[in-house]
């Protein structure tokens, strides 16, 4: 049984203009200890999927219209509030893109770690503070004991992100959701934080759902990757084989767009023509069909089902690139 299994998740936002189907039938599973990357452009539904797992979507004005989120066998969508809170921060924790805004500005780092610990553990104040020092050591915070008293605005970006990871790891969660954890950091710090996350994950045996739009981060960090387009997973599989031979034309377009160093100098940069369709009025068939170079009339008839492509690969496409034999045309 996978640790997390999302089946047919639909998360909708009611707006004056109509129903925005931000997540429209996402299927995804994560095994224990595994890192799955969720990639896609802005508005593809990556973050909404993650927030739906912890049921933080009502606060944002949305609602989960359908599907199941099975965490360790229990459907998160059917839990009462008390049981849900017992899972949040305890078995599933989350880290955010911008640590400065995700940390409470008027509480010291130490207080925030202690608070996170004492929410789920029956632990005294003194013991909790000792544990907080250990956690800051674990995330390689320089001089951890002194940092307990420090307020978020006095730390550097990298140290803030370390502090936030320490808070998230306080109760040794089984699953860590990382919502673009390195986007706000400079490249050097980004590499350090990714190394740290990988190392901690191995040490604590925790699974990770990594949300990102950076394919480089995916290649370095993830075991498997799921590509999201207009609220659906269009392709998923192990990172190496999927990056080597993408089956879905959208994935292929994304990968081409970042492989610019392979281009002859002076040539046009590859791009995916057209725009992401409005989530208010999705096309009846494949949402990518209007932009797809391989689209046929069949693509507009109905949405393609997820099909197995071997080696743990899945894709939702009527006309996939099926093997490397067909070759990659660099632009």
């Amino acid at each position: 049984m996978p640790l997390l299994e999302i089946r047919g998740l639909q998360t909708w936002f009611e707006t004056r203009a109509g129903t925005v189907k931000a997540v429209n039938g996402v299927d995804l599973s994560i095994e224990r200890g595994e890192t799955v990357a969720l990639v896609g452009e802005s508005g593809s539904g990556k973050s909404v999927t993650a927030y739906s797992v912890l049921r933080l979507i009502e606060a944002a004005g949305g609602r989960i219209a359908g599907g199941e989120v099975l965490f360790d066998g229990t459907d998160m969508l059917r839990l009462d509030l008390a049981s849900l809170r017992a899972v949040r921060g305890n078995r599933i924790a989350m880290i955010f893109q911008e640590p400065l805004s995700a940390l409470n500005p008027v509480q010291s780092i130490g207080t925030q770690i202690v608070e996170a610990l004492r929410l789920h553990r029956d632990i005294g104040l003194r013991a909790a503070r000792e544990r907080a020092v250990e956690l800051l050591e674990l995330v390689r915070m320089p001089s951890p004991r002194e940092r307990l008293e420090e307020y978020p605005h006095r730390l550097s970006g990298g140290m803030r992100q370390r502090a936030m990871i320490a808070i998230a790891l306080a109760c040794e969660p089984d699953l860590l959701i990382a919502d673009e954890p390195t986007t706000a950091l400079d490249v050097t710090t980004q590499a350090q934080i990714l190394d740290l996350l990988r190392e901690l994950q191995g040490r604590l045996g925790m699974a990770m759902l990594l949300i990102t739009h950076d394919l480089g981060v995916v290649a370095e960090t993830a075991d498997r990757v799921a590509v999201l387009y207009a609220g659906r997973v269009v392709e998923q599989g192990p990172v190496e084989t999927l990056f080597d031979a993408p089956a879905h034309p959208y994935t292929r377009g994304l990968l081409d767009a970042v492989r610019i160093e392979e281009l002859p100098p002076g040539s046009r940069l590859p791009e995916i023509p057209g725009m992401v369709p409005s989530l208010l009025a999705l096309p009846p068939g494949c949402a990518f069909a209007p932009r797809c170079p391989r689209a046929t009339p069949a693509c507009d008839a109905g949405p393609p089902a997820m099909r197995a492509g071997g080696e743990g690969r899945l894709h939702a496409c009527f006309n996939p690139w099926l093997s490397t034999v067909e070759g990659r045309v660099p632009a």
Partner: peptide, 26 residues
């Protein structure tokens, strides 16, 4: 609607605690 309040919610904080320890001091 600030992110640190959402972050506190992801930690499993109850509403009264959220109000008293996260929002009120700010």
């Amino acid at each position: 609607d600030r992110e640190f309040v959402l972050a506190a919610e992801t930690l499993g904080m109850s509403t009264p605690r959220l109000i008293l320890t996260q929002i009120l001091p700010n």
